[in-house]
Design a protein around this nucleic acid. Structure first.
Lengths: 166, 166
DNA sequence: TAAGATTGAACTCTCAATCTTG
DNA sequence: CAAGATTGAGAGTTCAATCTTA
């Protein structure tokens, strides 16, 4: 009798992926919880810090929160003075989120610290092994995203067939 | 000029780990959201399904939710008839959570489907590459957990120094 | 009709305080 | 005093509906 049900490799991979992610995330969360930032808030700041001003919709897709969540997150960052909304000149429905001077300074301060917290958290892997692991995880992630989009499109096609446009 | 700031390897590893995790998790979430289960609920059912009855505290550590969250999750699963609480005979503070007949039947039904959803989600990695990836992620996760415990202990020691026991 | 953003309600979870037993 | 579980309050989300502009 096997001690565990004969888990498929895929399931096992998912389990260890989840645990590794949760363990590293705990370090990250502790780091910015000290500063009163939620994960989504930090994610938004980081995206703006590295990419510059972004449409709320783009920011939303980058940080994987819903549109309502994005509004909430940006509201909070605006309230702290780290972010401002800038109307999009070419599309009056849309707004950019943009780091303020204070927001940029803040990220200058905390980003290096955050980086070293993460470095420590992933130090279980030797540096020379990291590139290979990075490649594998990239591949894994890309394919998972692609499959999800594939499913979403076929779902949309089916719905389109029931509600055809004129 | 580099397009991105010269990210450290560790940070890059963390980013791709997060993305891969989020992408696969999206498949998993969609799978059990259809059944009205939250991630934590599914996690608890899965743990009980594979390990048998567990003390709430053990279940909590396995699924990484807080103690209050565990009470909430178990309450919901009890309300659905999938789980029951069983008092621990040797320690009257503690309770086991245990799958009911209906809960076991339910997991028999859904677990295979869930497994194939996950298999598909991680199919970006060839089967013969998975064992190595699994080993790396295990190592990464274990070390991250160990470092967190290390930090927690030193924090506890410091607090203990301020509030020494008699 | 659809796409971007916002709003309000509801949900899942965390946190801190509490009760009970060890 | 510590450990297991529960409670109540509240945070941070998601979701569905709505408003505005394309």
């Amino acid at each position: 009798m096997s001690p565990q049900p004969p888990d498929s490799l895929g399931l096992k991979l998912w389990v260890v992926l989840s645990r590794a992610h949760a363990a590293v995330e705990a370090h990250a969360r502790e780091d910015f919880a000290r500063r009163g930032l939620s994960p989504a808030e930090f994610g938004a700041l980081e995206a703006l810090y590295h990419k510059g001003p972004l449409l709320l919709g783009d920011l939303q897709r980058k940080t994987l929160v819903t549109s309502g969540g994005m509004t909430y997150v940006v509201d909070r960052l605006v309230a702290r003075g780290y972010v401002e909304r800038v109307r999009c000149p070419s599309d009056r429905r849309a707004s950019f989120a943009s780091l303020t001077e204070a927001g940029t300074q803040y990220m200058d301060e905390i980003f290096r610290e955050h980086q070293s917290v993460i470095e420590r958290a992933v130090s279980g892997i030797d540096d020379d092994m990291k590139p290979a692991l990075i490649e594998s995880l990239k591949k894994l992630g890309f394919e998972a995203v692609r499959l999800a989009q594939e499913s979403a499109q076929s779902a949309k096609r089916e719905s389109g067939a029931r509600h055809p446009s004129p």
